[in-house]
Every structure is written in structure tokens, then in C-alpha cells.
Design a protein around this nucleic acid. Structure first.
Lengths: 288, 288
DNA sequence: GGCGTAATGGAATATATGTTCCACCAAGGG
DNA sequence: CCCTTGGTGGAACATATATTCCATTACGCC
């Protein structure tokens, strides 16, 4: 009956989620590597632990079912089910409620910042919902086809739209899709576009007030016969007349500040869609 | 092969809780007595159904496990687990019903891209909701205070996090908040940080696998006594030990691809909060 | 640098859970 | 009054799931 693995581990096993989180953080150091890893995963995916089986969450966390049991026991629980109960209770008891927590903190500057965060999160949710409901599926399909057929993608976006194209560039690089980001500090984007031709494509993102650089890129591309896919905020946007396909995105705002959540979701959709379609492209393109 | 119990029961089985409730109410009349009783119990104790076993809820409802299965099948489900899934989904997503739409979209090839978009929009929504529910308000308040007190803000973020700091830089510029974006193409970010001191602050954003450049900036700042505010994805992030305040952000993913919606919402919150607090700062700072 | 300890992966095992089957009961019709 | 039909309870079954065990690997210490 010798089990002095961790002589300190005795009367532990918190019954609520916050307590569990605290325990994991406290013992993060002396916990074995793999156990710490799955513990972190569990804290990040509580819903999965609540509903899944030991095997399923172990697979998600790239571990073995036995590791889940070991973790539970190392934390002082009798087994995996015992640990899981904490995650289930967390869902059952109505989440403390953001409003309550706000009130709990003394109404002061903390509450202001919290309210602001809630507002921005809400704006992101509304933007994404609106995108899903109002997107033009035909234009979306056309846009994906145009971009898939392109030899090289050119990405244009400045100011508010720059983060979106920057992220696109990062993702496309990981997906091994050839592309150029038109963001030269030397101001030679127009010259870069002279390398492009009708077998390429330009993806331009711009919202009112439309950045001159992006507009110029779109104009040049249109003149040179390079197909343009536009993500913009209105049918009357100056990008639309030059675009082979255009997609409307309306971002909700908080006190006039916008968060580009919907734009990112749309951009990611195009990137992943294009990358997936390119995987089996050559034999199908022969019919041209 | 005679199973005409209810000839009407064929293509039913709603996938969302509201639909299930409607079906039960509609068929309350022609449902056998015990089945109706159990159905009513289930609607009144959805959490118990979500987490319990067929046997446990049967006991609570004063019935037999077999009755639970019969109820599920009478309503058009394949079995108890199938019915239970509806109750679980209800807890999982506060916005029910988009799983249906996603499944509906899956029919048809042109709709593939639409399904992807729906998935990314859903990920954005889940991320934002999770942010709102799980943010540590105390840390958020500390972070805002630290950043507000800083003379100059330094922003660090690479790869996936770069778009977020780029957007922050754009917004802070519009808000007239002095700041430096550590994104030098010449690789002199460390040197730039030598200009900073304890009266400044560094806002670092980094997610696993943590970009070395960001980690280096955080380390340098910590050594020089520059307060660090970190936005990262885990309590075990290497940024945390060096941070005066740290905020956890978990982005939902689609096939492994993430959209930084929650990160943006959080970043915007900090930016706007800092800018607003700075508007009335001078008279209060005199006490130094 | 070899030895001993802890940690991990994988398969075997025991338990728990959903499902099916059969016997009994209740109600309605010949 | 008996027979038929649908409903219910309970137990047997098959599957899924948590748990345990053992061999192998990584790690620290002498």
C-alpha cells in the first residue's frame, strides 16, 4: 500500500471548475510533461471534456485514454468520470453570467472595460451571423473559382483591410499557394502588378473610405485583364464595377470602431477553399 | 416486419431543442400515457437528460430504461443516444440550429464553399462567446491600467498574431496614442526596445507555437523592467511568467484553421479603453 | 556511462450503458 | 366472456467505455 508518488497529493480534488483551473496552474510545474499537456488541453476545451469520452478527448489531445485517467488521479480524483463531473457541472450551473461578474467587480473602471469587451465580442458575433445569412452564394462560388484558376494570387488591402490580407498571406503561405502581398514599403505595388496577367488574379479588400492604393491596384488589374475578386462593404463601392466577383461584408461597430471578424472569416473561407480545390486540379483542368 | 405503430412517424426527428419541444407538444395526444409522461419529464429536466444515462433519467422519471428508448424511437430517433444528442447540443451552443443549416449546405458542390463559410462564421461566433464568458476581468482591468499608464506602447506579434498588432497600430494611430510596432524588416526590434523603459509598456500577442521574435521581445522587456501585457492561448504560455497582466484567448478552429476574431475583439477593447482613459490623464498624473 | 525510477503507450479487462427481447397486463371488440 | 392489440416492466444481451496492467521508453542520479 505504498503510493507516495506525490506525498503532497492527498486532500485535493476541487469540485468546481475555477478550483480545478487553479490546481492545475499551481501544479503545472511538478506535473509530468504529458499530463500537463492534456491538462492544458482540457482547460482549453472544456465542452469536449464534458461531453466526450475518455477515448475521444484523449485522441483530440493526442494522448492515450490511460493518460486521462492518470491525470484525473494525479489531481486527486478517483477516476476520469470523477474529473469529468467537474466539467459537466460547469455547463449545468448556468454560467455565472457575464453581467453578474461585472456587477461583482466594483462598478468602476474595471466594469467599463468589461462592458467594452462584451460590446466588441457582441459585434463580432453579429457580424459573423450577418455574414452567414446574407452572403451571396453564387458570387462566393464564382470568387472561389476565379481564385482557384489563378496562377499567382495578388492581395491588395490597406489601412483597416491590411490585417486581413496580411493574415491571408500567412495562411496561403502555409497552404503553399503562390501569391504576392501588395504592401511594398517602397511604393512599387503598381510595378509589381505589371508582372501579372490574365492567368493570375487579384483579391482586393477595401471599405469606405476606400484606400487610394487599393483602388489603384484594382484599376490597373482591370485594365490589364487580370480578374479581380473584391471584398467590400457596398454594392456601390468603386471596386465593384471592376470585379469579376464581389462579396459584401458588413461589420457591426462599437462606438464607431469596427472589428474585422466577418472579413477574416470570409477571407479564410476563400483561402481554404482555393487550397482544397487546387489539390486535385490538373486532370480536371484539361477540359479547357 | 409489421411496425405501423404510428404510420405518421416517419421523417421526423428534429435536431434542435425547440423543434423537439414542438414535436412532443403536437403529439402529446396520440402518445402512449407513459411515453407522454416521460417526454414531459425530459422537457422539464433537460440537463438531466443531457448528462445522465438512460437508466438514471428513467429512474428519475419513474420509468424503465426501455421506455426511454421507446420514446426516442417513437419520436423518430434511432435510439436514446440520438435523442440525447439534441439535449447536449442545446447546452453546447447557445445559438441552436446552425448545425442543421451547415448540414443542409453540405448537399451540393457549389455549396461546399458556403458550408466552409458557415463553419468559419460559426467558429468566430463561438470564439467571441467563449471570450465573453471566460475572460478574467481582473486581469483585463490590470492590463488596461498598465497600458494606460505607459508613455509609449510597444506592440509585438508575428505570424498569426501579426494582423492583430497591425490592426492595433492602425487604431492607436487614429486615436493618437503613441506607440511603436515591433515589425522591423531590418530585424532591429530588440534595438528599438532599448529605447523603452519602465514608464513604457509592451503588449505582446503570441500563440502556440510561439514565434521566437515575440518571445525575445518579451524577455528583453522583462529584463529591462518594462511592464508586459500578454495576450496568449494558455496559462502555460512562455509569455505568462514575464507578464504583469495576461489574457487568455481561445480561438475555435475549422479543420485546424483559426480565425483571430476573439483576439481582435480583445485587442480593440484594450485600445479603445486605453484611449478613453487617457483623455483625462494629465491632472491626475501630476501627483508624481 | 550504466543503473534505477518515473512516465508513457498500447492492449487486456472489468464495468457500465444502451438496446432488444419476452412475458405480463390493460383495454376494446367480437 | 374470450380474444386481440397495443403498452409496460424487467431481464438478457451486445456494445461502448473506463480502468488496469505490462512492456517500453525517457530521464535523472550515482
Amino acid at each position: 500500500m505504498r503510493r507516495p508518488t506525490k506525498s503532497t497529493a492527498a486532500a485535493e480534488a476541487p469540485r468546481d471548475f475555477d478550483g480545478l483551473r487553479g490546481l492545475v496552474l499551481a501544479r503545472a510545474g511538478d506535473l509530468p510533461k504529458k499530463l500537463a499537456q492534456v491538462a492544458a488541453f482540457a482547460l482549453e476545451h472544456p465542452d469536449e471534456v464534458a461531453f466526450g469520452t475518455a477515448a475521444s478527448v484523449a485522441a483530440s489531445a493526442k494522448a492515450q485514454p490511460s493518460t486521462m485517467v492518470r491525470l484525473a488521479q494525479a489531481l486527486g480524483y478517483s477516476g476520469y468520470s470523477d474529473l469529468q463531473a467537474v466539467f459537466r457541472d460547469r455547463l449545468r450551473e448556468k454560467v455565472p453570467g457575464y453581467a453578474d461578474r461585472l456587477a461583482a467587480l466594483h462598478a468602476g473602471k474595471a466594469a467599463e472595460t468589461g462592458a467594452l469587451l462584451s460590446a466588441f465580442a457582441g459585434a463580432a458575433i453579429r457580424s459573423a451571423q450577418s455574414l452567414r445569412e446574407r452572403i451571396d452564394l453564387a458570387q462566393l462560388a464564382t470568387a472561389a473559382t476565379v481564385l482557384t484558376g489563378a496562377r499567382t494570387l495578388y492581395l491588395a488591402g490597406q489601412r483597416r483591410s491590411f490585417p486581413a490580407v496580411a493574415y491571408l498571406s500567412y495562411v496561403l503561405a502555409k497552404l503553399a499557394v503562390p501569391h504576392h502581398l501588395l504592401a511594398s514599403p517602397a511604393g512599387i505595388d503598381a510595378e509589381t502588378l505589371t508582372l501579372a496577367g490574365p492567368e493570375d488574379a487579384l483579391l482586393a479588400i477595401s471599405f469606405a473610405p476606400y484606400a487610394p492604393g487599393t483602388l489603384a491596384s484594382v484599376r490597373v488589374a482591370h485594365e490589364r485583364g487580370i480578374p479581380v475578386v473584391a471584398i467590400t462593404d457596398s454594392p456601390f463601392s468603386p471596386l465593384v464595377p471592376s470585379a469579376a466577383a464581389w462579396l459584401e461584408v458588413i461589420e457591426a461597430d462599437v462606438e464607431g470602431f469596427r472589428t474585422p471578424s466577418a472579413t477574416f472569416a470570409l477571407a479564410m473561407t476563400l483561402a481554404v477553399s482555393v487550397a482544397e480545390r487546387r489539390r486535385v486540379p490538373l486532370n480536371r483542368r484539361r477540359d479547357r
